[in-house]
Design a protein around this nucleic acid. Structure first.
Lengths: 91, 91, 91, 91
DNA sequence: GGCTTTGTAAATCGTC
DNA sequence: GACGATTTACAAAGCC
């Protein structure tokens, strides 16, 4: 079966487009991952610096983790409150 | 033993300083972790968007991973090359 | 190089042993995973039964999760206490 | 509106019952989850022990996973067979 | 039935 | 460089 000149062009265009789109996606992700790595390194630096100033890194991590937990818990409390209000027909 | 007025002030100053420094460290880390989370979410968004456009997310991740490996390998090759050049007194 | 009759037997014995040992490990793990699956199914049954008695499964899960969090938190509090005591040279 | 003495008792009884039932459900689930965790830990122990005997844990996991897949496939084959037998009126 | 959430596995990183 | 701890990726389960 023959393929018309038009459809060949279409195929090429479509193919090109797909390739460009994929490339764009990959590059966006790689760009973001680089930024993420930069920040991770910054965090490591802060811990390292703190350690240099006599802080116990493990304790610091514990503090950070607990504060995050507290935040999560507050969020959950709100969720529960909403659930109750919902159950009481107050929302 | 008595504590002089001066040392009380010193203690307070020292204590205040330690507290402020700790607070600063914690806040810097939390700030950075927030930024990191933002970027992680952005990455998820890109994958989600790609999925919406018909891409297979797992395959995309594989591509990203392979390209990272390739980059690492290239970097390693360069390291080896430099080592040789160094050994040959050409650097 | 020749291989004595004894070492052939040794090799076989060693090989057999290795094979049996590997088999034993695999079977122990598979046995445990079966048990684990049984329990998971039991848990699902309890939730299903509760649902049949008019309980809101999602709410039940929230209760279970919160109680677990509380337990974790208590455990962490103890960890922190120990850390402080350690720091104070009291352990 | 007034509430009769009888209905107060009923309410209390009902309330007590509901509370006890909920408590029973929660405790059953927590009990089962504990058992599940115990088994998970046992599995980890087996892997750890195997590692101590020179086995490669990742390879072991691969074996387990493949055998599970094979089992699933066998199960699927049986399902297909049953379907055929059913279709042929032989079940 | 897909889409999010949760649990598990793998990989990475810092430590000793 | 092996080990444990943390982070990240994958898989499974539950919910809509």
């Amino acid at each position: 079966m023959a393929t018309s000149a038009a459809s060949v062009l279409d195929d090429q265009a479509t193919h090109s487009f797909a390739k460009d789109q994929l490339k764009a996606i990959v590059e966006r992700i790689e760009r973001l991952e680089e930024e993420k790595k930069t920040i991770s390194d910054d965090i490591k630096d802060v811990y390292g610096e703190a350690k240099g100033n006599g802080y116990d890194v493990k304790a610091l991590r514990t503090i950070i983790r607990m504060r995050k937990q507290d935040a999560n818990e507050r969020a959950e409390q709100e969720t529960i409150l909403e659930t109750y209000l919902q159950a009481l027909g107050m929302l």
